Amino acid sequence: MTIELPVEAVSGKPLIDPFGRAIAYLRVSVTDRCDFRCVYCMSEDMTFLPKRDLLTLEELDRLCSVFVDHGVRKLRITGGEPLVRRDIMTLFRSLSRHLASGALEELTVTTNGSQLARYAAELADCGVRRVNVSMDTLDPDKFRAITRWGDLDKVIRGIDAAQAAGLSVKINAVALKGVNEDEIEPMLEWAHGRGMDLTLIEVMPLGEIEPDRIDQFLPLSRVRASLLDRYTLEDLPDRTGGPARYVRVKETGGRLGFITPMTHNFCESCNRVRLTCTGTLYMCLGQEDAADLRTPLRASEGNERVSQAIADAIARKPKGHDFVIDRGRNRPAVGRHMSVTGG
């Protein structure tokens, strides 16, 4: 049921969903394009959106600013690969004003690291303090096989540049059965040895891809049990705004995160929504329901219609997703690829 609010009453109001969760975190996909083709994320021959369908950087800034006005405290810029979008740093520079004013607590980015060497210092100048780098292996050949096109050395140079610029780096690794499960311990040691968190992520059933996801899926409950043979894992209350549950690895002193949408979903505390580069708002990563924000954005110079559209959308935010991976359901839970929604 849609909650109808007078347009003039919406502006500035906090965004509270039907389950009492305050929406304080917006993930913004600025492009569906990427310079990698990771096997769990994209098909090798992707058809990307025509550029005319994308919001301009000015429009993305305007939408983000409306969300900030409604109580969003954390913005994460994603893609595709966000740093391949032309002139992307103009968006970071513009959004940094909300950090300066105190309206925004954090501006972050998730990247594959391919462009970090080029942009790390400028990101830091814009007030970015943390970056997530998606990297699933330390083996150069395996890295190229997973990403199809990626260069591991280039990503490592990007991580070097990010740390040199003072950015905190977290490594995100998708756990892939038969691919990198034997590398989780070495990656943990490597990341913690460099002062970086490592977060492990279960494969999610988003979009049609060539491999069968049941063949990719590695339950993190099994990974955690295996790690306990060698490490002491101490549960932490830490939250970074996202879905990860963290432990402290006593032997390394570093943090290890688990994102488990399949074996233990994280929906009960979800405070996130996702905005695509076309102005479509998804209230849940694992549901198809969405709201068009581009039309009201372009219909008026004021933001009242956009605010109303956002309020209406948040009133439909579901309690959780319906992700399933099994042999009997050999199709994605939703048809769009992760690169469309924003990782």
Rank of each mutant, 00 (worst) to 15 (best):
Ile3Asp: 14
Pro6Cys: 09
Glu8Tyr: 15
Ala9Val: 12
Ala9Met: 15
Ser11Ala: 15
Gly12Asp: 03
Leu15Thr: 01
Arg21Ala: 03
Ala22Glu: 15
Asp35Asn: 15
Arg37Ser: 11
Cys38Thr: 02
Asp45Thr: 11
Asp45Ile: 13
Met46Thr: 12
Met46Trp: 10
Pro50Leu: 03
Lys51Val: 01
Leu54Ala: 10
Leu55Phe: 04
Leu60Pro: 00
Leu63Val: 05
Val66Trp: 02
Val68Asn: 03
Asp69Asn: 13
Val72His: 08
Val72Phe: 10
Lys74Ile: 07
Arg76Lys: 12
Ile77Cys: 01
Gly79Asp: 08
Glu81Val: 05
Arg86His: 10
Ile88Leu: 02
Met89Tyr: 06
Leu91Ile: 00
Leu91Met: 05
Phe92Met: 05
Ser94Pro: 01
Ser94Ile: 04
His98Trp: 14
His98Thr: 02
Ser101Tyr: 13
Gly102Leu: 12
Val109Cys: 15
Tyr119Thr: 07
Ala121Val: 00
Asp125Val: 07
Arg129Gln: 12
Val131Lys: 01
Val133Lys: 01
Leu138Asn: 06
Asp139Thr: 08
Phe143Asn: 04
Ala145Met: 12
Trp149Leu: 14
Asp151Thr: 08
Asp153Phe: 09
Val155Trp: 03
Ile156Cys: 09
Gly166Ser: 07
Ser168Pro: 01
Val174Leu: 10
Gly178Ile: 09
Asp182Val: 03
Glu183Trp: 10
Trp190Gln: 07
His192Ile: 06
Asp197Tyr: 00
Ile201Cys: 09
Leu206Gln: 09
Leu206Val: 06
Gly207Cys: 10
Ile209Glu: 04
Pro211His: 11
Asp212Asn: 14
Ile214Arg: 14
Asp215Arg: 14
Asp229Cys: 10
Tyr231Cys: 00
Asp235Trp: 09
Thr240Gln: 13
Gly241Trp: 12
Gly242Pro: 08
Tyr246His: 14
Val247Met: 09
Gly253Glu: 11
Gly253Cys: 09
Gly254Leu: 03
Gly254His: 09
Ile259Pro: 12
Thr260Gly: 03
Asn265Ile: 02
Cys267Trp: 11
Cys267Leu: 07
Glu268His: 14
Cys277Met: 12
Cys277Tyr: 04
Thr278His: 01
Leu281Met: 11
Leu281Asn: 02
Gln287Lys: 15
Gln287Pro: 01
Gln287Phe: 01
Asp292Lys: 05
Arg294Val: 02
Arg294Ser: 13
Thr295Glu: 11
Thr295Lys: 11
Leu297His: 03
Glu301Trp: 13
Asn303Asp: 15
Arg305Cys: 08
Val306Met: 05
Ile310Gln: 07
Ala311Gly: 03
Ala315Asn: 10
Ala315Ser: 15
Lys317Val: 04
Pro318Asn: 13
Lys319Val: 10
Gly320Arg: 11
Asp322Trp: 06
Gly328Ser: 12
Arg331Gly: 12
Pro332Asn: 07
Ser339Asn: 14
Gly342Trp: 04
Gly343Asn: 04
